[in-house]
Design a protein around this nucleic acid. Structure first.
Lengths: 194, 194, 194, 194
DNA sequence: CATGAATGAGGATTCATTCAT
DNA sequence: AATGAATGAATCCTCATTCAT
């Protein structure tokens, strides 16, 4: 048991250290030696768990995306109305980012790096379906504006990123429920049919 | 004259080559030798014009930003109403990005790289004033929603980025005026008071 | 018994795998991990049987040489005339090489690698005596040409290697008794007194 | 002029150092750093002249082969009889090897290493024609034994290697013309028709 | 101004070997 | 005996930068 957890420990310590350093210094400015050092393991150990630096980065990305998706969508299905679904999704997303800023910044950095293009489209777009479905249903029920689904997806996604980045720069508002509420209202107002 | 223009030629050829390669491969995966090569000059020549690689990158960023600002704001002051001002700004921005995708992608990539933090806040935020003013006036005239100026700035900026990235992926809509019009309506609807 | 044979199995599986890989990729390009893998054992197991990679190589060399010697000299003593002795030796040698090309190539590769110098002269020249004796007797009986024994040894050894390498490249002649016979005649003609 | 010769100097110093170390320690046991060091240049300089270690090795091989061929065949065409041609070729070859033992050992080592297979057959066999022609003419004139040309080539080539390796081990005979003469007689006797 | 040879620190990766289990 | 995770020294190669010409 102990050995089991220890092994898991080592792998995840590497992932943790990598994320921390990547966010601060970028992928290329972070040597694998620094990651190993930060994780408290030998340089070679890193390559025992990840064949290459790139595979470490990809693993990190996939795990983070997975976590992001499972946490932000939790409970959404159970909500009854579109607005309640969207609100929960919105809050989940913002809170996830605020709770794990490293993860959010990592994903954002990854998305704008040349690494992304090497991941198959499938892997990246795996979760699109969920969002697209939600948008489609909203449009059917005439709750959401009738604009092309993928345009809507882009517009809303980026808008949420905007809020999050704003809150990163103004940490004093992160716990301000009034502020969050205002931002969501803005969001909802922009996508809903009147 | 000729030598003068040739010189200018060389400098801008380096900048051009750098942008092209940076966008495709990222900053770190683009050696200065590759840039020099692509520009058709000797490796050392690059360092004649730019003291370091980083200064080349920063120069590129500043020039691009400058160009972006001067082109996207052209004529905005002259417009009479807030809506017309905003609309022109919006179209200018989208068109600039579609006309010079390399430049847009370069800025976007730069913003998410560790290089950004090395530029003084001043240099990055140099042009904020213009946008903030516009938003403030809009709020005063009760044309725009009454939410904090910098939040509004973030939300709208990211929303435009969303449109642009969407159009990059769907080039078939880039010339579709109906589409652009729809996207702008969505935008205006989201920020304007009703 | 079973465990005993299994153990022997493991050791020889390692040796077998090593030979196969060494011949194809060379000593240095064959990691011990690859050998262990090919042999179907754990990496550490290899070091249980062989203290170092070098000792594995040396073991392989010695065993192969031993096998080579015992098989190629089998029955030679019993032959009555020098010519018959030499012919049997020649055929045994060629056939051994054709039957076990890996082994032959391994020996050849080893001989030209820096590893050889680390084996004591004794170990390498262990079997010289047999050949030298045969040559000496042949010269005494005025059957073989009267040239220095060790020169004769070199000349003939290399000539046989020449035949073997030729046959490796022209596998279509390997079973051609006429061809073999011709090659032996050439050989015999070159060393025998007329 | 000086710069020209200096440049040439540096490249050839690297080649020289490489040959020296390769012969003593083998390809894989000779780090590029050791080569650079021995040549008195920086490590990076080596890669300025040779893209990879392998290309350095191949360059070395090709240059050596070229040199070998041009020197050993010098004057052969001018000789009148087959025997005189063959004798000159034989002596040229043996002398070349004795004069440049490093080069000879390098070629021999290379031939038995996995590097060889990466050179196109063409490059390796480029010079076969010359030898094959000589053998064919010798057979036509009924001066040489009537055995397949390529078999003859293999047998004789290896026989010469045998002599050379023998002389390396017995340096006391290297200048002994009687010895060389005896070895050539053996050689000629083995290939000529009686 | 322009060149490109030269540098050497830095970085990803490999691999023989050890050792706790 | 057998395993395979862990190690870290060793190695190939890259690349920003310098500088003599």
């Amino acid at each position: 048991m102990i050995s089991q957890s220890k092994i898991e420990d080592k792998r995840s310590r590497i992932l943790l250290a990598a994320r921390r350093l990547f966010v601060n210094q970028g992928f290329h400015s972070t040597p694998t030696s620094a990651i190993a050092n930060e994780a408290g393991v030998a340089n070679g150990t890193l390559f025992h768990y990840f064949k290459t630096k790139e595979s470490l980065i990809n693993t990190l990305y996939k795990e983070t995306k997975e976590n992001f998706f499972s946490i932000t969508t939790a409970g959404v299905e159970e909500e009854k109305t579109i607005k309640r679904k969207v609100r929960l999704l919105w809050y989940n997303t913002v809170k996830w980012a605020l709770n794990r800023p490293m993860d959010f910044l990592f994903i954002q950095q990854f998305s704008n790096s040349p690494f992304i293009s090497k991941l198959t489209q499938d892997e990246v777009s795996e979760h699109f379906e969920f969002y697209y479905n939600l948008i489609d249903i909203g449009k059917e029920k005439e709750t959401l504006k009738d604009i092309p689904t993928d345009l809507m997806y882009h517009l809303t996604t980026y808008q949420i990123y905007g809020v999050i980045n704003y809150l990163f720069q103004h940490s004093e508002f992160q716990k301000n429920t009034e502020y969050l509420s205002m931002a969501f209202d803005f969001y909802w107002d922009s996508i809903s049919k009147k």
